[in-house]
Design a protein around this nucleic acid. Sequence first.
DNA 1: CCGCGTCTGGGGAACGTTCCCATACGGGCA
DNA 2: TGCCCGTATGGGAACGTTCCCCAGACGCGG
Lengths: 337, 337
Amino acid sequence: MSKPRQPTIKDVARLAGVSKTTVGRVVNGEDLRVAEKTRARVLAAIEMLGYERNIVASSLRTDQTLMVALSIPDIMNPFWPEVARGMQDTCEAQGYTVALLNSDWDAGRELVHLQTVRRNRFDGLVLNPIRIADAELRALNTPTVLLGSGDDYPEFDSVGSDSVGAVNTALEHLIALGHRRIGLIAGISQRRRPDARYHCYIEMHQRCGLPLDLGLVVRCPYSQAEGAAAMCQLLSLANPPTAVLAGNDLLAIGALIAAKEAGLTVPDDLSIIGIDDIDASSTTSPPLTTVAKPKYEIGVQAATLLLERMRGEQPGAPRKIVLEGELRVRNSTCPPR
Amino acid sequence: MSKPRQPTIKDVARLAGVSKTTVGRVVNGEDLRVAEKTRARVLAAIEMLGYERNIVASSLRTDQTLMVALSIPDIMNPFWPEVARGMQDTCEAQGYTVALLNSDWDAGRELVHLQTVRRNRFDGLVLNPIRIADAELRALNTPTVLLGSGDDYPEFDSVGSDSVGAVNTALEHLIALGHRRIGLIAGISQRRRPDARYHCYIEMHQRCGLPLDLGLVVRCPYSQAEGAAAMCQLLSLANPPTAVLAGNDLLAIGALIAAKEAGLTVPDDLSIIGIDDIDASSTTSPPLTTVAKPKYEIGVQAATLLLERMRGEQPGAPRKIVLEGELRVRNSTCPPR
DNA sequence: CCGCGTCTGGGGAACGTTCCCATACGGGCA
DNA sequence: TGCCCGTATGGGAACGTTCCCCAGACGCGG
């Protein structure tokens, strides 16, 4: 079980009868000047020994680890795997490896993640911020891209989906169908900022001249069970809504199930619309109408910005990318009766 | 944008008025003997400078990177996030960081992942093998734990769920309900070994004295769309089955939707059972009966074995852990009419 | 024939840590 | 008083790479 040392650049040099500098030259760039004959000899030696460049040593010298971190709340939350995949594909294509960090919406773990990035000298970080302060992020002194609106971090690049736009899209869909009493199951985010979805809901009502009834708004944590409870609450109203917008699909699915259990037929008795388009949304019955977020694309864009920053290009102003959601009309919405 | 070097052990030493060796001693172990007064001075200096141990340099010296890799087919496949999370939680608790690698069932990418592990000198690897040969894995010369049966890799630890057992459990459930014509939608695995589920199905029929009709077996790739197509095929039979077992929940959900579209009522007209218990399974209508696999636990166990190997404990024989599935009876199964 | 530029290759320091060994300093004991 | 041992600290090499700088070889024009 003892580990026989992997061959080093020196072993290759000895075998090829050249100096380690020369070996370094052929291993690294194609552009470095070294005679064709020598190069061939070195390559043969590399092949023979099965030499692999030791990135750890290389990192120490060059200050480049070829590793980036992705810190998200929870990979088990159905929103994140696609984002992670988008980022991973993009980074891998450029030779970077992605370390996965789950913060669980915990400020402490988030801090630990920053420490991990610093200690391991990762080259970059993509972060869905929980409570981290702008100053702490700047002190990290590492290229960083934020996932989300990034409003609290004016100096950083960010990639998010347009939550306000998504609420607008969903509401417009419902209003276009003829609904005028629309319930809102607003999630309570664990983050600092109050949820933008709520404000957007109110504004939309004013703009469209819809009567605003704050009794139609329920706030609860983002989970299926809570969504179900919230729906029960709405259904117990003297004058329940004819349609419900949920802050995300988890809530919407909970609401859908609760409505069916209460004996309602969706969408005939009640329309339900969600936001995100997670896997499970297409397989409920009826399949959930929702505003799909470009999850994979979010990952790709975040990685792209990060890679640019890491290359040192674009020392310019922070870029705030906001990707639009897309309405996916399935069968949980229809005109009110 | 230029990166002001992070403070090193030397800076701390200078500030504290001691040698770098002494600083190293207080940074590393609690057990190293250094006078209380000196220790306090060093700690103060560390605090003041915001010093963080450079793991890259440390790795070079000690041959320990504190990084492990997880190579799976696709994090977007609903089976994997929980496994990843289980592994990540366990590794993080021991100070290890997990790099996420997606192979996409591609032998080439799998090979690239091994290279990544070698080049970055990761301390360990948890791998869901695609086509990799046992010899290549041994040549990696790094502690490795396999996800799956691990049958093809006798020398390695492995953690898997009991596929055969799951099929048995599902079949027993169906048979106990009174079904005698049971269809099988068997997945086609991209791996080398033929799928064990199929053999188990046949054996179970013989053991229970059920008539075996190979027309009731359909093979297709593991995806929802394929599951739906397979179900259509089964329904077009002159004498269709009264119950269907799908090789995993993705197939089962496809089958469920196809059956409903064909005008059948599940479970009254047709029982459907899956394997895995992915998120979406609990929110279909009716909710899917399935044999749940302990996904999170698989990740935990794999990480635990890996950490033990990495610590150099247990130089003993390879351990093959097989975790049992658990029947989750929901509403997609009932006695035949 | 000499000087100079070009091209190929090598020597050796540096990155920040760990760890072996050496040293300094007391104090106890013969 | 002299010696030995234990404790606290420091010096410096080593890990494997990169990269700066220099040395030689060769060709060519003056």
